[in-house]
Design a protein around this nucleic acid. Structure first.
Lengths: 218, 218
DNA sequence: CAGCATCCGCTTTGATACTG
DNA sequence: CAGTATCAAAGCGGATGCTG
């Protein structure tokens, strides 16, 4: 990329990951794990295919990602984060935490992927009563459900349905985010189309108090 | 800027602060406090003046910074971070922590400003024996000295000379960073031109162990 | 089909000059 | 001091084509 040519830790970091799309590529690899080129391309709506190829080259030469020839049955190239690339996790988390409040005013043109919801939920919400038995909430905002679980005072998210969820939230992602982050009351969200099934009282447990920092992977 | 048009917390954040120069402007305002246009311009070597003006407009319209007409004796416009802009501190710190290891291989063409050193030092170094009496180290890497102090287990930095420093380090910034982060031995650094005055043993106290997270402002 | 490279029109950036 | 104005160069996005 174009370097800032400044002897400064911030500038040096931005020299490596400041280019357009770079941090979103890291986001995809963090959320999805090792990925094929085509899957990255589909997880990054709007990127030109030549730019994706170029960015992957740059990130590889900077030691952020590595490519790996997977044997059958995959039989294709996989891109994965290196240990150094994984260290960008805290940066991604801070970006997600700062951006969570922006999620309540979505743009009409915005593209949405289910897995993207995991970040604001995990980072902005915390378990206020960690001593009570764990709760499980299933979020249905699109094609694939997401499961939110409390575990030892932390909030974890993972793709897929839950076995025995205490609560199921179905509706537009901004309604789900609004309710989970406490920016939207349950009454208002319901009036705007959110549907709930199960025990909605567990929601008071997951509210932004002192947000958790650098939660575990998952 | 050009939006990613993705309903994702990371993408939304980058829509606001992902443009080139934006985070470095925030860096300057964090390190220097409220600043005049000219001082920002001189603290951001390489930025075109039209770009600085445009970025300041963008950041203001996004609620990150505010401009303020200061009365005499300043009698000019000051740019300062809003509370929302101050919340970017954690992002800046994570960027600085990640970039600190890159500081040992400087480029010949890199520009340097004394205050930039504060970030990697404060973020990458911690006090291993917080119960012992505090130590003070003065860094002389350019025109203006920087003071490093331990206080209740945290490491603080501030511009200016120290009253009674335990140690004074004089030399190129990469030597100072290398020694403080433990990437360079004192012997090697001295051989490359680092000069020390005082009790060099206090350096073993300030080494990267479990790096401190989100230290207080200062 | 997966993983690119090439071409092209548009936008953004950087350098410089100029202004209230 | 605090910007605007201008313009060449680089970067980006979209379409398309190539190769295993």
């Amino acid at each position: 990329m174009r370097s800032y040519h400044q002897y400064c830790a911030i500038a040096k970091t931005l020299d490596v990951i400041g280019d357009r799309w770079n941090l979103l590529i890291v986001r995809e690899l963090l959320l999805q794990g090792p990925s094929r080129y085509t899957d990255l391309h589909q997880g990054l709506p709007g990127i030109a295919t030549n730019l994706l190829a170029e960015r992957l080259r740059d990130l590889e030469s900077n030691g952020i990602i590595a490519r790996e020839e997977a044997p059958p049955p995959i039989a294709t190239t996989l891109f994965r984060l290196t240990p150094r690339g994984l260290e960008l996790k805290d940066i991604i988390y801070e970006l997600g935490r700062w951006g969570a409040p922006l999620m309540t005013e979505p743009d009409e043109h915005d593209v949405y992927r289910d897995t993207w919801l995991a970040l604001p939920v995990r980072l902005f919400v915390n378990d206020r009563t960690p001593d009570e038995p764990p709760v499980t909430i299933e979020l249905r905002t699109g094609a694939e459900p997401i499961t939110v679980e409390t575990r030892e005072g932390n909030v974890h998210t993972r793709p897929g349905a839950a076995a025995n969820p205490d609560l199921i939230l179905t509706g537009a992602p901004q309604l789900v985010v609004g309710v989970l982050t406490g920016q939207l009351s349950l009454t208002t969200a319901r009036a705007r189309g959110l549907r709930t099934r199960g025990n909605a009282k567990v929601l008071v447990r997951l509210q932004p108090g002192s947000p958790q920092r650098t939660p575990g992977s998952g």
